[in-house]
C-alpha cells in the first residue's frame, strides 16, 4: 500500500506536485493518469526516495522507502527506461542490482527469461530499442519479487505484443495481492489495464475513483439544455443541485446551459414544474477519452492549437 499525504514538490518557482493525497491499495491495478508534465514522474520519484518532498510524506507499507530494510524486495520500480549505464550489458546491470540485496543469480536469469530479454541480455544496453529498455526496466523492478510494483509509463515504446504482455503482467501481479501502481498519459491504455484510477493534472489530484465510475462519468454526467429563460432555469437547477452532490450549472451562451450532476429527467421535470420552456435536452455521454480530456482540460500545461481549435466548436455549437 502506498500512502501520500500532502505530498508537495517545488522546483524553484515551479510547483510540480501540489499537496496531493492518495492511497494505492494492494490487490488491484491502480492507474496514475495525467498529461505530460502533470507531476506523475515526480510523484513516483518521491515514492522511491530519489526526490525529497518539499513538504508532506509518502510511505510504502507504512514506511518511507529509504527506511525499508530491503527496499528492492519490498518495492520494485521502473522509473524510466534509461536508468541504466549504456555501456553495461543487461545481465551485468541486473547482476549488480541483485548483488546489493543478495538476490541469487538464478533470479537474474529468471527475470531475463520472464521479460523476453534472453537474446540480448549480454549486449550493451546502449544499443537497445526503447521497447527493450522498457523490458529491462521491468526486469529490474521484478528482481526482488516485491510486493509493491511501480511502473512509470511502462508501455512507452513497446510493440503491440509487448503492450499486451505488460497489461497481463500487471493484472497478474495485482491478482497475487501485490500493490501495482502504473502511470500513463494514455486514457485508452488505462481503460483496459487499471481497476482504479488516480488522475493528476498540474500537480493536483483531479479524480480518484474506480475505473468504472470514471468511464461511465458517474459524477460527471453532463446534460446540454437550451432554453430562453437561462437565468431562471439556472437558478432553479442550482437550487435542485443542493440535493444532488456536486451539481453545477455552466452558462455558455445566453440560452445554452451545461448541467452537471442532474439526470435529464430531473431537469425536464424541474423545467415543467416551473413553466420554463426548454427546446433541447441532450445527455452528453463522454467517452473515457473525453472524460479524461474534460477532467484535465484546465490542467494541461501545454495546449496544442489543434486540440483547442477542435474542442471549442464542439462545445459551443453542438447543434
Amino acid at each position: 500500500m502506498i500512502e501520500a499525504r500532502g505530498l508537495t514538490k517545488v522546483y524553484g518557482d515551479k510547483t510540480a506536485v501540489a499537496g496531493v493525497d492518495f492511497t494505492v491499495q494492494p490487490g488491484r491495478v491502480t492507474g496514475f493518469l495525467g498529461p505530460n508534465g502533470a507531476g506523475k514522474s515526480t510523484t513516483m520519484r518521491m515514492i522511491m526516495g530519489l526526490d525529497r518532498p518539499t513538504s508532506g510524506t509518502v510511505t510504502v507499507d507504512g514506511v518511507p522507502y529509504a527506511r525499508h530494510a530491503a527496499p528492492l524486495r519490498d518495492v520494485g520500480a521502473l522509473l524510466d527506461a534509461k536508468a541504466v549505464h549504456t555501456s553495461r550489458s543487461a545481465y551485468n546491470h541486473l547482476l549488480a542490482m541483485a548483488a546489493t540485496h543478495g538476490i541469487p543469480k538464478q533470479r537474474v536469469l529468471d527475470v531475463i527469461e520472464m521479460t523476453g530479454l534472453g537474446e540480448v541480455a549480454r549486449k550493451k544496453v546502449g544499443g537497445f530499442s526503447l521497447g527493450m529498455g522498457q523490458r529491462l526496466g521491468i526486469a529490474a523492478a521484478l528482481l526482488g519479487d516485491p510486493r509493491t510494483v511501480i511502473l512509470d509509463e511502462p508501455v512507452n515504446g513497446l510493440d503491440p505484443e509487448g503492450v499486451v504482455w505488460v497489461r497481463n503482467l500487471v493484472k497478474y501481479l495485482a491478482s497475487e495481492g501485490r500493490t501495482v501502481f502504473l502511470s500513463s498519459h494514455l486514457m485508452s491504455e488505462m481503460a483496459v489495464t487499471a481497476d482504479h484510477l488516480i488522475v493528476i493534472g498540474r500537480g493536483r489530484i483531479i479524480a480518484d475513483a474506480p475505473i468504472q465510475d470514471i468511464i461511465t462519468g458517474k459524477d460527471r454526467g453532463r446534460v446540454r439544455v437550451r432554453t430562453d429563460q437561462a437565468a431562471e432555469l439556472t437558478r432553479l437547477l442550482t437550487a435542485d443541485g443542493a440535493t444532488v452532490d456536486g451539481a453545477t450549472v455552466d452558462g455558455q451562451e445566453n440560452e445554452l446551459l451545461e448541467v452537471t450532476g442532474l439526470e435529464p429527467r430531473r431537469i425536464a421535470r424541474t423545467a415543467l414544474e416551473h413553466g420554463v420552456m426548454i427546446y433541447e435536452l441532450t445527455p452528453l455521454r463522454a467517452s473515457l477519452e473525453e472524460a479524461y480530456m474534460e477532467l484535465t482540460k484546465d490542467e494541461v500545461e501545454y495546449h496544442s492549437l489543434i486540440t483547442t481549435g477542435d474542442t471549442a466548436p464542439a462545445q459551443a455549437g453542438g447543434n
Binding site: G49, L50, A83, V84
Partner: peptide, 11 residues
Amino acid sequence: GMARSTFTAVP
C-alpha cells in the same frame, strides 16, 4: 540515469 537504479537499490 544509472544513478536512479543505484540509489533505488541503496536509498
